[in-house]
Design a protein around this nucleic acid. Structure first.
Lengths: 240, 240
DNA sequence: ACCTGAACACCGTTCAAGT
DNA sequence: ACCTGAACACCGTTCAAGT
C-alpha cells in the first residue's frame, strides 16, 4: 500500500509558505486529494466512469502518478468506501435503547444516501474502519441489556445491518422503471389478475423509502424484543 | 434485443435428424447455450473473468458471433439473472401463513446460494421475470389475512426481501477475513477493550448463516404480526 | 520521493465482408 | 440469418527513464 508523505510538507502552525519558488499551478498529489477527486467523479458520473485515466486527467497528472498514492484501483475504491464510513457519527445518548439502535442505522443510511453511487462500494468493502464497530457495539449492548445472549444479540445486529444495506442497495438503484413491481403492474406489463393482492397495493401513491425504512426497523425491534425476552433462558439455536 | 430463431430448427416430434450433411463439431449457438456457458464461467471464475471474448472462446466462436444471440454484455448479464430467478419455485401449500412466507424467502435464498457469484447480478437485475411477483403476492396476501392494510403489507414484503438479499450479499462475499467483525476482533487488529459487548460475542464459534437467516425471518415475522395487528385500524404512516 | 511516456495485455463494440 | 477478422476507442498496470 503506497502512502505518500507529501502531506507532512504542509508548513507547521498553519502558516502558508510565502516565498516558495513558484506557486504551483497544480497542488501536489496526496492520497486524500486522489480519493476526494475519485469520489467526485463517482458521485457525478458513476462507477463505470471512474477510471484511473479519467481520474488522472481530472487531477492533471499522468495515470501512473496515481500509483504513488494508491496501490491499485481496488485500493482506490476501498479507500473511498472506508473514508465514507469512517466519517459517520453513530453515537446517540438517548436513554431508550430502541432509539439508540435506530439512530445508528439511520446514521448509516443517511451517510450512504449522501453518496448513492458509492453504496455498492460500501457493501463490498473488504477491511472495515474501526468506526463500523460502533453500531455493532451499541446494538449488541442494547440487546444484551434486554436479556439476549451474545449470539442472539449478534444475530439481531446482522438482521438490522443487512436489512438497512439491502434496502439501500435497492433504493439507490432507482428509478425502478422495470424493477419496481408496483410500477410494473401499473404499466400493464404484468397480468394484474394473477396477483390480486399486489393489485390492491398498486393503488398506493409514490413509494416512500424513508417510511419503509422506519417501518422495517420498528418491526425488527418489536420482533427482537419479543423473541429475545421470550427465549431468555433458552436460546433459539436449532430453530428452523 | 437480438433473439435467434435457431431453436426452431429442432426437428418436430423429438426425432433426431439422421442424415444431416455432417455432424457439427460445434453445435449451433443459441441464446440458451450462450447464457448457460456464461453461467459456467461466472460460477467457476467470477464476474471479472466473464468477458465476451472469453465466453466466445469457450463456445469456440468469434466474439462477434455472440451478438447474434445477445444484444450486449449487459443483456447477457441480465439474461443470466432472469434465468436463475425464473426457475425458482416459490409456491408452498402450508396452511400456516408464516410458513408460506418463510418458504418463499428460503427458496429465494437457496436459489441464490446455488450460484453465489451471480448474487450481485440478481440484486441489480433491471427487468424482473414474472415469477418474482410470486413471493410478493404470497407475502402481501398473508399479511392482508392478518389484518395489514395494503401499504403495510407491501412494506412487510420489502422488509423481508431486503433482509434476505442483504444477508445474501454479505454471506456470499466470504470468507470475511477482514470484513467479519468477529474475525477482526479475534485477529487482534482491533482494540477489544473498546468494544466489550462484541468481545463477548467473539467467543462464539463459527458463524452459521442459515441459523442467522432463520432467526432473522422469525424475528421479522413476529415483529410484523405484532405491529400490524396492533395498528390494524390505524396504519403507522407517520412513524419516525 | 515523485512523476512521466511508451508499451503490454486486455476490454466491449462497430463495421464491412463473407456464406 | 448467422458468422468472421480487422479495427476503434477504451481499460489497469509494468517498466525504464527522468527530476
Amino acid at each position: 500500500m503506497a502512502v505518500s508523505k507529501a502531506a507532512s510538507r504542509v508548513p507547521s502552525k498553519g502558516r502558508l509558505p510565502q516565498n516558495t519558488r513558484k506557486p504551483r499551478k497544480r497542488p501536489a498529489l496526496t492520497r486524500e486529494r486522489v480519493l476526494a477527486a475519485a469520489l467526485i467523479i463517482l458521485d457525478r458520473h458513476g462507477l463505470a466512469a471512474l477510471s484511473m485515466r479519467r481520474l488522472a486527467a481530472r487531477l492533471r497528472a499522468s495515470p501512473m502518478a496515481l500509483y504513488n498514492h494508491v496501490s491499485s484501483k481496488r485500493d482506490l475504491l476501498q479507500g473511498i468506501a472506508r473514508g465514507l464510513i469512517a466519517r459517520v457519527d453513530f453515537s446517540c445518548q438517548n436513554p431508550d435503547w430502541r432509539e439508540r439502535i435506530r439512530a445508528c442505522f439511520r446514521a448509516l443510511r443517511n451517510a450512504c444516501l449522501a453518496h448513492p453511487r458509492a453504496v455498492h462500494l460500501i457493501e463490498t468493502i473488504e477491511t472495515l474502519p474501526a468506526s463500523i464497530f460502533e453500531p455493532m457495539e451499541i446494538t449488541t449492548a442494547a440487546l444484551g441489556q434486554i436479556g439476549a445472549d451474545p449470539q442472539d444479540a449478534l444475530r439481531g445486529y446482522f438482521l438490522l445491518t443487512n436489512f438497512t444495506l439491502g434496502q439501500l442497495s435497492y433504493e439507490v438503484r432507482g428509478p425502478f422503471a422495470g424493477i419496481d413491481p408496483i410500477m410494473a403492474l401499473r404499466s400493464g406489463k404484468i397480468d394484474r389478475s394473477a396477483f390480486p393482492d399486489i393489485e390492491q397495493a398498486a393503488s398506493i401513491g409514490a413509494w416512500d423509502f424513508e417510511c419503509a425504512f422506519e417501518f422495517g426497523i420498528s418491526a425488527i425491534l418489536a420482533g427482537l424484543e419479543q423473541r429475545l425476552i421470550k427465549t431468555r433462558r433458552q436460546p433459539i439455536s436449532g430453530v428452523r
